[in-house]
Amino acid sequence: MHAPAERRSEIELELNGETRHGSAEPRTQLCDFLRHDLGATGVHVGCEHGVCGACTVLVDGVASRSCLMLAVQADGRRVDTVESLARDDVMNDLQQAFSRHHALQCGFCTSGILMSCVEYLERVPEPDEAGVRDMLSGHLCRCTGYTGIVRAVLEVAGQRRAGESQQQALENRNDV
């Protein structure tokens, strides 16, 4: 693919499960493309140089800073933003836990943190506090002091494991 400067190139990607089309100049950052062209304003843009983590999205399931990617690089990729988490206006378990534990105040950092948590909990289903804090080091939150965030993530990890063991128990019973 050769995209000339100052001309918009076609981009097709799967955003939150839907095929979407748009166009962008080579220099357009993925975060701006997602917000301005595709309307995914849950993607927040803080520092634009990779330090704050507010813009974190999943690219092919992998937590990535969308200010450090070009929109043209997302062509043909799967991108998930915070908009993918709630179903039928019901927040998912992570979002609900964030609310319960006061894991956000202004909420600017939250959508990026949630997307990191999505990948992290898939990779590390049994995290400890040190692990969660290490994961959170990739994000800056100026409001909460992180304590509520750590509690929320650990709680959801526990709930998901309990849910799975319940599921497993049910399946085992059906086997008998």
Binding site: M1, H2, A3, P4, A5, E6, S9, E25, P26, R27, Q29, D32, E48, L70, V72, Q73
Partner: peptide, 9 residues
């Protein structure tokens, strides 16, 4: 925002 450039994949 970045200045303009050509992009080649």
């Amino acid at each position: 925002k970045a200045a303009s450039f050509d992009y080649v994949r």
